[in-house]
Deep mutational scan, measured.
Amino acid sequence: MTGIVKWFNADKGFGFITPDDGSKDVFVHFSAIQNDGYKSLDEGQKVSFTIESGAKGPAAGNVTSL
Rank of each mutant, 00 (worst) to 15 (best):
residue 39 K to A: 08
residue 25 D to G: 05
residue 59 A to M: 15
residue 63 V to Q: 01
residue 1 M to N: 08
residue 32 A to M: 06
residue 43 E to D: 10
residue 20 D to A: 08
residue 39 K to T: 08
residue 29 H to A: 04
residue 44 G to H: 06
residue 3 G to F: 01
residue 1 M to K: 11
residue 22 G to Y: 06
residue 55 A to N: 11
residue 24 K to A: 14
residue 38 Y to G: 09
residue 26 V to I: 13
residue 7 W to L: 03
residue 11 D to Y: 15
residue 19 P to S: 04
residue 54 G to T: 15
residue 12 K to N: 05
residue 40 S to E: 06
residue 22 G to Q: 07
residue 40 S to Q: 10
residue 28 V to K: 00
residue 45 Q to R: 06
residue 2 T to K: 08
residue 6 K to W: 04
residue 43 E to M: 15
residue 54 G to M: 10
residue 26 V to Q: 02
residue 35 N to E: 12
residue 39 K to Q: 10
residue 27 F to S: 02
residue 27 F to W: 08
residue 28 V to Q: 00
residue 11 D to H: 15
residue 44 G to A: 05
residue 60 A to W: 02
residue 8 F to R: 01
residue 42 D to N: 14
residue 48 S to G: 08
residue 39 K to N: 07
residue 31 S to D: 04
residue 25 D to R: 05
residue 36 D to I: 11
residue 15 G to Q: 00
residue 2 T to L: 10
residue 28 V to L: 07
residue 8 F to W: 14
residue 66 L to K: 07
residue 32 A to W: 04
residue 6 K to D: 02
residue 40 S to N: 09
residue 33 I to V: 09
residue 43 E to N: 13
residue 62 N to F: 11
residue 29 H to K: 03
residue 4 I to G: 03
residue 50 T to E: 08
residue 52 E to D: 09
residue 8 F to T: 02
residue 26 V to L: 12
residue 41 L to T: 02
residue 6 K to N: 05
residue 44 G to V: 02
residue 13 G to Y: 02
residue 41 L to V: 05
residue 55 A to M: 12
residue 48 S to Q: 12
residue 49 F to L: 03
residue 51 I to W: 08
residue 24 K to S: 12
residue 55 A to I: 12
residue 49 F to H: 01
residue 46 K to Q: 10
residue 14 F to P: 00
residue 48 S to H: 12
residue 46 K to Y: 10
residue 61 G to V: 15
residue 53 S to E: 13
residue 22 G to S: 06
residue 10 A to R: 14
residue 20 D to Q: 06
residue 35 N to V: 13
residue 64 T to S: 11
residue 16 F to P: 00
residue 2 T to N: 06
residue 38 Y to P: 12
residue 3 G to L: 01
residue 45 Q to E: 12
residue 33 I to E: 02
residue 14 F to N: 02
residue 8 F to E: 00
residue 11 D to I: 14
residue 61 G to Q: 14
residue 66 L to M: 12
residue 25 D to C: 07
residue 21 D to M: 06
residue 49 F to A: 01
residue 44 G to C: 08
residue 21 D to V: 07
residue 50 T to V: 11
residue 51 I to K: 08
residue 54 G to R: 09
residue 49 F to V: 01
residue 14 F to Y: 14
residue 25 D to Q: 07
residue 52 E to Y: 15
residue 6 K to T: 06
residue 30 F to I: 09
residue 23 S to H: 07
residue 63 V to E: 01
residue 27 F to V: 03
residue 54 G to K: 08
residue 18 T to V: 13
residue 31 S to Q: 06
residue 49 F to W: 02
residue 16 F to M: 07
residue 41 L to G: 01
residue 36 D to G: 12
residue 53 S to T: 13
residue 11 D to F: 15
residue 10 A to N: 11
residue 47 V to A: 02
residue 10 A to M: 11
residue 44 G to T: 03
residue 19 P to A: 04
residue 20 D to C: 15
residue 33 I to C: 04
residue 19 P to K: 03
residue 46 K to H: 13
residue 6 K to H: 09
residue 23 S to C: 08
residue 14 F to C: 05
residue 6 K to R: 12
residue 61 G to N: 13
residue 17 I to P: 00
residue 37 G to C: 13
residue 2 T to M: 09
residue 46 K to L: 11
residue 49 F to G: 00
residue 3 G to Y: 01
residue 18 T to C: 15
residue 65 S to F: 15
residue 54 G to F: 10
residue 14 F to G: 01
residue 60 A to R: 01
residue 51 I to M: 11
residue 28 V to T: 03
residue 62 N to I: 09
residue 51 I to D: 02
residue 64 T to H: 12
residue 38 Y to L: 12
residue 29 H to C: 05
residue 64 T to Q: 13
residue 42 D to T: 15
residue 31 S to E: 05
residue 16 F to Y: 08
residue 13 G to V: 01
residue 54 G to W: 11
residue 20 D to T: 08
residue 38 Y to T: 11
residue 57 G to E: 04
residue 19 P to Q: 03
residue 22 G to A: 06
residue 41 L to R: 01
residue 54 G to S: 14
residue 58 P to E: 09
residue 39 K to H: 08
residue 17 I to S: 00
residue 56 K to N: 12
residue 26 V to W: 03
residue 4 I to M: 09
residue 23 S to Q: 08
residue 19 P to H: 03
residue 24 K to C: 12
residue 32 A to G: 07
residue 29 H to R: 04
residue 56 K to M: 11
residue 57 G to F: 07
residue 8 F to H: 01
residue 4 I to C: 13
residue 27 F to C: 03
residue 47 V to D: 00
residue 17 I to L: 07
residue 7 W to D: 01
residue 26 V to P: 00
residue 61 G to F: 14
residue 54 G to Q: 13
residue 13 G to T: 02
residue 20 D to F: 09
residue 45 Q to K: 05
residue 62 N to E: 07
residue 57 G to A: 06
residue 52 E to P: 03
residue 56 K to E: 07
residue 58 P to V: 13
residue 57 G to R: 10
residue 62 N to M: 12
residue 32 A to C: 06
residue 63 V to W: 01
residue 32 A to Q: 10
residue 44 G to W: 05
residue 65 S to T: 15
residue 60 A to G: 04
residue 26 V to T: 03
residue 1 M to Q: 10
residue 47 V to H: 01
residue 48 S to I: 12
residue 22 G to E: 05
residue 64 T to Y: 12
residue 1 M to F: 13
residue 59 A to S: 13
residue 36 D to V: 11
residue 19 P to I: 05
residue 16 F to E: 03
residue 3 G to P: 00
residue 58 P to S: 09
residue 60 A to Y: 02
residue 49 F to P: 00
residue 31 S to A: 06
residue 15 G to P: 00
residue 15 G to T: 01
residue 50 T to D: 07
residue 55 A to T: 12
residue 61 G to E: 10
residue 10 A to F: 10
residue 42 D to W: 14
residue 1 M to L: 12
residue 30 F to G: 05
residue 53 S to R: 09
residue 35 N to K: 13
residue 30 F to Y: 14
residue 39 K to Y: 08
residue 57 G to T: 05
residue 39 K to V: 07
residue 36 D to F: 12
residue 56 K to T: 10
residue 42 D to K: 15
residue 64 T to E: 10
residue 3 G to R: 00
residue 40 S to F: 13
residue 19 P to Y: 06
residue 24 K to W: 07
residue 50 T to L: 08
residue 8 F to Y: 12
residue 38 Y to M: 11
residue 3 G to I: 01
residue 2 T to G: 04
residue 29 H to F: 09
residue 25 D to K: 04
residue 57 G to Y: 08
residue 30 F to R: 13
residue 33 I to T: 03
residue 62 N to A: 09
residue 15 G to R: 00
residue 47 V to S: 01
residue 16 F to V: 06
residue 61 G to C: 13
residue 57 G to P: 07
residue 56 K to F: 14
residue 18 T to H: 08
residue 33 I to G: 03
residue 42 D to H: 15
residue 35 N to H: 12
residue 2 T to F: 09
residue 47 V to I: 05
residue 16 F to R: 03
residue 7 W to Q: 03
residue 20 D to M: 10
residue 5 V to A: 02
residue 53 S to L: 14
residue 22 G to P: 03
residue 42 D to I: 15
residue 51 I to S: 04
residue 13 G to D: 01
residue 39 K to F: 09
residue 46 K to T: 08
residue 56 K to Q: 11
residue 60 A to P: 01
residue 47 V to P: 00
residue 46 K to W: 12
residue 33 I to L: 09
residue 10 A to Y: 12
residue 38 Y to S: 10
residue 13 G to I: 02
residue 46 K to P: 10
residue 25 D to F: 04
residue 59 A to G: 06
residue 59 A to C: 15
residue 41 L to M: 05
residue 32 A to R: 07
residue 31 S to C: 08
residue 15 G to H: 00
residue 40 S to H: 15
residue 50 T to W: 09
residue 40 S to P: 06
residue 13 G to H: 04
residue 39 K to D: 05
residue 62 N to H: 10
residue 15 G to S: 01
residue 41 L to D: 01
residue 24 K to Q: 14
residue 11 D to W: 15
residue 30 F to P: 02
residue 29 H to T: 04
residue 8 F to C: 02
residue 42 D to A: 14
residue 32 A to F: 04
residue 30 F to T: 06
residue 7 W to A: 03
residue 37 G to Y: 10
residue 65 S to W: 13
residue 21 D to Y: 07
residue 43 E to A: 15
residue 37 G to I: 09
residue 13 G to N: 03
residue 35 N to S: 14
residue 48 S to D: 04
residue 63 V to F: 02
residue 42 D to P: 09
residue 8 F to N: 00
residue 33 I to H: 03
residue 34 Q to D: 09
residue 53 S to K: 13
residue 3 G to E: 00
residue 14 F to E: 03
residue 44 G to F: 05
residue 56 K to R: 13
residue 3 G to W: 01
residue 52 E to G: 08
residue 65 S to N: 11
residue 9 N to S: 12
residue 47 V to K: 00
residue 14 F to M: 06
residue 26 V to C: 06
residue 27 F to R: 03
residue 64 T to R: 14
residue 11 D to A: 15
residue 66 L to Y: 08
residue 34 Q to W: 08
residue 1 M to E: 05
residue 1 M to A: 08
residue 10 A to W: 11
residue 33 I to W: 06
residue 48 S to N: 09
residue 28 V to W: 03
residue 37 G to F: 09
residue 36 D to T: 13
residue 42 D to M: 14
residue 66 L to N: 08
residue 2 T to P: 04
residue 63 V to H: 01
residue 45 Q to H: 07
residue 9 N to M: 06
residue 19 P to F: 04
residue 31 S to M: 08
residue 46 K to N: 07
residue 20 D to W: 06
residue 17 I to V: 05
residue 20 D to N: 08
residue 35 N to R: 11
residue 4 I to F: 11
residue 51 I to Y: 10
residue 3 G to T: 00
residue 8 F to D: 00
residue 18 T to A: 11
residue 31 S to L: 09
residue 30 F to D: 03
residue 65 S to V: 15
residue 11 D to C: 15
residue 36 D to H: 11
residue 60 A to S: 03
residue 47 V to N: 00
residue 27 F to K: 02
residue 61 G to R: 15
residue 63 V to C: 03
residue 55 A to P: 14
residue 59 A to Y: 15
residue 39 K to S: 07
residue 41 L to K: 01
residue 6 K to M: 04
residue 15 G to V: 02
residue 44 G to P: 01
residue 63 V to T: 02
residue 32 A to S: 11
residue 59 A to L: 12
residue 24 K to L: 10
residue 52 E to N: 11
residue 55 A to E: 12
residue 12 K to Q: 09
residue 17 I to R: 00
residue 12 K to T: 06
residue 62 N to V: 08
residue 24 K to F: 09
residue 56 K to H: 12
residue 50 T to A: 06
residue 60 A to T: 03
residue 52 E to L: 14
residue 16 F to N: 02
residue 9 N to F: 08
residue 52 E to I: 14
residue 6 K to F: 04
residue 46 K to D: 04
residue 62 N to T: 09
residue 25 D to H: 05
residue 65 S to C: 13
residue 2 T to Y: 08
residue 39 K to W: 08
residue 66 L to I: 13
residue 62 N to S: 11
residue 20 D to H: 08
residue 65 S to I: 15
residue 61 G to W: 12
residue 18 T to I: 15
